[in-house]
Design a protein around this nucleic acid. Sequence first.
DNA 1: GCAATCGTGCTACCG
DNA 2: ACCGGTAGCACGATTGCG
Length: 794
Amino acid sequence: MKVTFWLLDINSETANDSTELWLWGIDEKGNRVLVIDGSFVDYFYAVMAEGFDPSKVAEEIRKTHGTATVKLEVTERKLFGKTVQTVKVYCRNPAEKAKLARTLRNLEGIKDCLEDDIRLSMRYLIDNNVVPCAWHEVDADEEESTQRVRADKVYAAKSPPKLLEKSDVPSLRTLSFHMTCYSREGTPKPDRNPVIIISTAASTGEEKQFLPNTGNNDKALIQEFAAYVKKLDPDIIAGYGTNTLDWNYLRERCRTLGIKLDIDRACTEPHTSVYGHVSLTGMANIDIADFADRFPEVKVKTLWNLAEHLGVAKTSESTVIEDVDFADYWDDKQKRIALKQFSMDSARSVKGMVELLLDFAMQLSSLVSLPLDHVMTAAVGFRVEWFLIKHAQKIGELIPRRVEQPYRPYAGGLVLKPQAGLHENIAVLDFKSMYPNIMIAYNLSPDTYVSPKEPEPASGVFTAPEVKHRFRKSPPGFYKEILTYLIGVRGEIRDKMKKLNPEAVEYRVLDARQKAVKVITNAAYGYAGWIGARWYIKPVAEAASAWGRHTIQTAISMAERAGLKVVYGDTDSLFVTYDEKKTRELEKEIEKELGLDVERGEVYVRIFFTEAKKRYAGLRQDGSLDIVGLEVIRGDWAEVAKNVQEHVLEIILKEKSAEKAVSYVQSVVDELKQRKVPFRDLIIWKTLTKPVDEYAVKASHVEAAKALKNKGWRLAVGDKVGYIISTGEGKLYDRAKPHVFATIDDADVDYYISKQVVPAAARVLEFFGVSEEDLLKTATQKKQAAKSLMEFMK
DNA sequence: GCAATCGTGCTACCG
DNA sequence: ACCGGTAGCACGATTGCG
């Protein structure tokens, strides 16, 4: 019979010489199905050394390793664009694949073995064009018993599933949860601290809260939660920070309590996958924290900061309860109510974020072919790589092994020195997707690179400026094909979207799709220059940036020839004096001359540059500010300083009144002196980028981290540490206090005035004749300062 | 002997 | 575990003055 299903998860099961691929999905009727394919045979390639006959080598392999192999095939493949002879070695046991490949590398006539590092489940997806988060049709027989697993139907596939065009998404059951643990000694430890609350919010609308029956006894709590998960049988289980914290905690806690957390669809426990995320067989475990890097404007990546940014929760001082206070809240009858509410609200926020973000994850998953639970935990480089791998398989290009490479830097984009001060009426010209389009235009690819020792191919070559790397003109390289496809597809999607109502489900799905496509397109250049890349060829990235510099240089000359003044530029953008007719002509001329599309970006009514590159603030025509690079948008400055700078910029750009800005700054300084600012506006957040004892120098955030650790708080690399500078003796790092252990009365307001607020304000105001000293002047001195300022402005 | 200067480490930004 | 270019702070060693 034919079964149509949408693929949610895949895993492989190997037992007694048989290997099965388990495809978990949902059929058109909403049944949860498991399709088992036992016919796939894992393999790798043995690449022949120069001058060896593959059939003879195959014979030798058969003789020496016949029992480990099922079948041997002589085939031709390509490696970095060059044809190679190979023997495809089918393995009896997938677990022994890498070992067999290692042995065969030493066999005479074999230069190398490749693709033994591709895991079976990925191999299956790639080879059969089976795609996660997409519909397939499979010819299969229904199995009688579904006892081993939690599924409505189990099928045995008679052949691999076929991908269908159908682009809708079935209705998925999701369960969002939030877990709270009790500890009076810092970060809770699963061997001694209980779980006190688990709140859940399901897509069905059902909400639950699991609490200890008596005291802090959490055994029944966890068992009830586990039973509920099994009963609800969600397709997606989501939380915040669950990949790094909750699942491990629950697993450890269950071990301590002697209970089994067999909640997944194969009735096994959550397991840490080789890729680092936690996997629940047959369902998708989603950690919303893994989506946080899509929102760089959220500096401190907490559940609540992200939820508020996404508009799924409104936070106020009272909503959020800090981890340090959990135990106090729990132990106080009145406050416990608030803690329970907080937990429930957290689960609801997770649910809200899932609803907003899942579309993107599913589209990215199907685009790059990584299963849904893995795609968001995978780093950008790996997402690009899996997309490349899928295409490589189609065109017969072998997947290179990841080899350790020495780091060799190369020159990147060109950044112009800005014309400092205020400018009126400035337009930005941007090259559209400059690097991808350069790679397409000059056929830059790992498989088109012509090394210096090679003769020029018949097609001729493109030679990059400055660096002189050569790339054959034809046939098209594999990056060119991929990038052309991605850019084309994104255009098609966006055209389709224009005809749809933005409220429609289809519009949302398409929007998620085009975002996923854009992410991969934009990361291709970075991938090319990444030493960890399987297809790393430094000249590819180096040539792309060299052509980029050449492109922008040429555009600058053309702009100046056209009589447009260039006030700034960075990599693929030019800031020019705006003249409707001249810029339009320039855009056309650039496109004709360079073959790259230019689009007019922002047109600023007024823009302010400091002398520094990559830092400016512009006033848009709609009255909003566009602030770039300055303290306002940095996460490592105290909020009080950022607010002041933002307000100063607004006054300068809208009213051009340095005088007004100065008195505003002075008013904030006064408030600070009286400690009349919210405490949280004094917190400085910095990331721990390595373990605390590996720092070469003493630093405030590291000292604050040490203080937290001393009180039992577990801090991981990548965590943000919030601290304030307190009054007292010594260096700044001696006076840094974790914000959770401090109050406004501890704060050294002089530090905040002289090292935060005033420098941030002066960064802007010094271009209007205002010094840091002017900003520190008292009220009586203000009038004098204002007078001389008015002279200056004239 | 001490303040000014400079190099280094570090973080977070831009495109 | 995507690239290079860049700013700017704190720290701590070095320099320069006399």
